[in-house]
Amino acid sequence: MNRVKRARLTEQIAKTVLGLMAVTVLVIAAAVLIYIVSKGYRAINWEFLTTRPVKLGREGGIGPAIGGTVWLVSLTALFTLPVGILAGVYLSEYAARNLLTRSIRLAITNMAGVPSIVYGLFGLAAFVMLANFKVSVLSGALTLTCMTLPVVITATEEALRQVPQDLRHASLALGSTKWRTVRKVVLPASMPGIVTGSILGLARAAGETAPILFTAAVFMSPQLPRSPLDRVMALPYHIYAEVTSVPNWSEDLIWGTALVLVAGISIVSVAAGVWRSIQRRKIRW
């Protein structure tokens, strides 16, 4: 009886300690969120969102930085989606079970773990210098593409695997080729998962600084790029540059910038998640 009691007591203690750790995580996250919002909301107004920075960003707005980030992410999406989705299709529908496929999987998980600054170096050497795209939206987007690809590939493969095998067989049994089966049945059926996973990956790309540090970003630029070969301002880089190289940077404006960035990423991610669960309710296997 005594032994049982002691076991119960130990369990209670363990549970409390572990629970406290879980709560700590929640508290940290809540603190981060509240801190950003409370420090940043004052700066947010239409003018701040649309006008360009004045006096090295101590005054004015962040219009060009928002636009630049949108540019970068759009171009990244343009490159990443087709390639990433096809690569996911390869792994799920075409790849044989062999050493090569295993190596590809290994390469993909490894790509996800390569430090973002190393992608920056690679982008500098490959796109800025060798391909001679200069420091530009194009170079930055290509660099971000390399970083985002593993996310899109993994999301696609997982979504494709959810599609029941029966559905593929039904299409093949109707005399469809493999590609037609993939294009008309498998891909449409798995779109919610693919799109949501990709959006989450692209939202992350929007917040990256290190990869664009020497491939795309410029500290001050009065307007949006006119071509993919122009440099751009970007939200995360703007925060970094202000904090580290502008004396007496404006706290209000920089926290405002951080809020815009975090809110943008969160809103897009949440919207993608909600959209997926709505779609999932429609398609149930």
């Binding site: 029941p164 029966d166 559905l167 067989h169 039904a170 299409s171 093949l172 049994a173 109707l174 005399g175 469809s176 008309k184 049945v185 449409p188 059926a189 429609k282 398609i283």
Partner: peptide, 25 residues
């Protein structure tokens, strides 16, 4: 397979409209 059709054990309609399912082949 266009000449020899198959019906499977569990119903496996494609996730699309009735019309599009039949028109698929």
């Amino acid at each position: 397979r266009m000449r020899v059709g198959q019906v499977f054990q569990r119903p496996n309609p494609f996730p699309m409209s009735i019309y599009d399912n039949v028109a698929y082949g």
